[in-house]
Amino acid sequence: MTAVAQAPAPAPSTDGKDRRNKARPRTVAEWVMLTLAVLGALAIVFPMLLLLLNAFKSPQDYANSGPLELPQALSFEGIRTFWETQNFPRALWNSIFISTMVSIIAVVVSVLNSFAIGIGRVRGRTWIVLVFLMANLVPQEMLFDPLFQLYDDMGLLSNPWSVILTFVVIQSAFGTYLLSSLLGTFPKEILEAASVDGATRWRTLRSVIVPIVRPTLSVLMVFFFIWTWNEFLLPLAFLNTSDSLTVPLLLEQLNGERQTDTTTLIAGTLISIIPTIIFFLIFQRTLTRGITAGAVK
């Protein structure tokens, strides 16, 4: 590439240059580019701002005013209707229960798998990782009908465990892949020291390896939680009674009902976003750090 060659080797002293870079006034072009970046971010949050602006309008107010106008009076009618006609707390609990169970169990399964693959170096482990990764590749419509019949036979339909079981497998596929390469480079000296001290494998895993990789495990848990929370197709197929719905399913169902008033729908959408926003604020750092963990080794 000829373009790269044009960049000269940096001069030995960087100190003075750094100062010069900071001191240099910002150019017009830089302000323009900042404005573009901010406008782009505004475009991203714009739909959510619209929700906030319109969720507190009464139906009459909504019908008579533009979407960008402030509500004439703060009305909680939409929110009250949503709360009274839908069992949102139940859906919230279902989502929390399913996502929590999946993130815990999937991390345990990932650790067990990757212990055999990364530490135990069992024969054919490249293939084993690929077999597990299939769980991540397979489109969900391939799983949906056979699993529906299977869970029907087991009496698990509309039971949160049908979704938990399924997503433990799908999420632990990614966990196994990530942890196997991490444990493959686990410091050998620590393992040998544990062995000299007479620790069994199980003991080494539980008391030595897991505490050391705990930061990675908690990042994985956060991601498994969100991924499971956001799932749609398979929960839609498996959870059919009104008290087994998750938050996305509840909102989708409300959206599908013809008689739903628009302000109720707006209020419901806003309320459904709130748990995600809270989660985002708590785990923002973990999230932005974590997304890149699996990307490029």
Partner: peptide, 22 residues
């Protein structure tokens, strides 16, 4: 700004879809 751009990624697609259909 990066966090703002990332926000839709953690929103349930179903919720984002209902918002757009409104």
């Amino acid at each position: 700004l990066r966090a703002t751009y990332y926000l839709p990624q953690i929103l349930p697609i179903a919720v984002a879809g209902v918002m757009f259909s409104w």
